[in-house]
Nucleic acid binder design. Structure first.
Lengths: 340, 340
DNA sequence: GACTGGCACTCCGGCCAGTTGAGTGCCAGA
DNA sequence: TCTGGCACTCAACTGGCCGGAGTGCCAGTC
């Protein structure tokens, strides 16, 4: 027996009802709420079938049905009717994001916005260094033997490092060091910098070599080895609304949130800006997120992806709404970045 | 009848037991666990007295006693024996913080560390702009009519803003603009910059005035009006451990955490680095934090205070341990900042 | 006057049994 | 293939009962 039209319709109804009410849904209430033009008994047969196939299950005998991870998956893939945001919502998003004054502000606003729109926990990755290119490098003398290196990327990220020099350098020397590194590195994608950095030594006079050597080391660390990726999150309050089963679900989601590595992995696997990923329960790699679902996508100016963003919540989540919100927000952040 | 020695001892015992067990403590268990050399009946009399005075209360008749906010207050002021951290712990703190590569890293490490040490939610304010002074200002040309302004403060914070210019400027012009603003502003405390900024216009040639005017506006916004203070927090998982009463306590604490303003207010009121504040339950201004306690202090290099940090948790908190941890961490962060 | 032992009392929490109601599975018939 | 009917299951609620932890009070002792 195949999964015919009505069975799918029943599954959709179950998912939608369960997401709305958080309670197992039975055959009778189902025919009442949706206008399925058959009797509860018929629905029961369909439900039995859906249960055999693993799309829904009963918390206990003689209770209503609840979608399984597999059921949500089918729903997301074939049944969810995406609810596009209203024009008003879109305008609000746009206006809110455009008010940002710097990158930090953009990220903060984005994450707050996403949490508010979806009533879930939102996660936003800062534009990844490895996907950026160098816009400017600045050297600020602190002492005679100590510089602060400031790197500004085209995505607006600013990184700073201290550099200890083996010997004192004059202000003029600092200027020429700065000119050299800017000349060689500006415009480089961060992944391409190692070769460029190697060549730096040959560009300066003999007496600046030791200083340049220290600089190169720090540059290598900053630009290449330490892919310091950062994430921001917001909306944890929503967990108290959604994850009533606190001790378990709540705890493990919070734990996952505090592990930046886990978050980055979640967001890092997106490649094209249009690719939106939904990971449901078991599909998540992280042990702690087996009870949760993640809707994520990449974002960036134009067609390039510089980072990921998404929402995170109990598997019992309004997927169509979450998907619409994540898509829309990603697009508008991209626009804002393109302008900045 | 005054609050004599034994009554205080009883209060301390109640607080310590309740913090340890999370259960109302009765007269019998009390004499057993602590070696009070009197009978339960005597303790009961003392308890009745303490209850009359408002230091403890019963959740319901015929239950054990639980400290009130007033009881915790007395405990903190007169009874808590501070538990200094072990030498090993101190070394661990120091080593961990010294591994930080930049300011962001320092703040992140600090907040994680504090959360771990106290098993509470930790909050750390970024070094406040209003308490910093300008170390360097950089102008990076993006287009002909668009600059990026980067400000570096002595506390290591880096702020960036876009500046739209009314007309195109050459690279040389940018250099001279940069020189002028650096000359006038470097070393200024951020609170003193407005007057310095006013003088900027007179320092440049006629044709650069419009550009300088745009710059001044942004500078004013950045340095003065927008006291953009930032905070980081960590350890929300600990709430699931401590605040068993989730729906209420947990929710309101999480809500407070998401409101940066509330957090900043919490941390912002500390003036001297040695002043450590404990706010218990009702003593908190924020409605959401009436169920919580906050232990906070200022931190900064040497004797100056550049920001605040602290922990946040249910009133039923191990105050002596929290106080010791907050103090120690504040001191070590100060040291790290002084070196950086 | 301070402490103690004894006693009656209160109230929470756990346990048990009974009832209700939502929901199911199955079957015979249209 | 759908439907109505029927018997069955089980969680959730209710009320009653009991035990235990804890209290307040009082009379007696040091």
């Amino acid at each position: 027996m195949p999964l015919d039209g009505r069975k799918l319709e029943v599954l959709r109804a179950i998912v939608e009802d369960y997401v709305a009410t958080h309670e197992p849904v039975g055959s009778k209430t189902l025919v009442e709420r949706h206008q399925l033009r058959v009797s509860p008994a018929t629905i029961r047969n369909d439900m039995a079938f859906l249960e055999d196939e693993g799309y829904i299950k009963q918390p206990h005998t003689s209770a209503g049905r609840v979608p399984t991870d597999k059921g949500y998956r089918l729903f997301v893939d074939r049944l969810g009717r995406i609810k596009p945001l209203s024009a008003a919502e879109r305008r609000a998003i746009q206006r809110f994001l455009e008010g940002a004054v710097d990158l930090d502000d953009v990220v903060h606003r984005t994450v707050k916005l996403l949490a508010q729109l979806t009533r879930q926990v939102a996660v936003v990755q800062y534009p990844s260094l490895s996907r950026s290119s160098v816009r400017h490098l600045e050297l600020v003398p602190l002492h005679q033997t100590r510089l602060m290196l400031v790197m500004i990327t085209d995505t607006g990220r600013v990184e700073q490092r201290l550099v200890e020099l083996p010997a004192a350098v004059s202000d003029d020397d600092v200027v020429s060091l700065r000119n050299v590194i800017n000349e060689k590195l500006v415009g480089c994608r961060l992944t391409d910098t190692p070769t460029a950095i190697e060549g730096l030594l040959d560009e300066v006079h003999q007496e600046l070599r030791p200083a340049m050597r220290s600089l190169s080391t720090v540059l290598l660390e900053t630009l290449v080895e330490r892919h310091e990726e950062r994430v921001a999150f917001a909306g944890t309050v929503n967990l108290t609304r959604n994850a009533i089963d606190l001790s378990g679900t709540m705890r493990s989601i919070l734990e996952a949130l505090e592990e930046e590595v886990v978050l980055l992995k979640l967001l890092g696997e997106v490649d094209s800006p249009t690719a939106l990923r939904v990971r449901i329960g078991d599909e998540n790699e992280s042990e702690n997120l087996r009870v949760a679902s993640v809707v994520s996508t990449g974002y960036g100016p134009g067609a390039t992806v510089v980072g990921g963003l998404g929402v995170l919540g109990p598997t019992r989540m309004d997927y169509p709404a979450a998907i619409a919100a994540v898509r829309a927000v990603a697009r508008y952040v991209g626009d804002v970045l393109a302008q900045g």
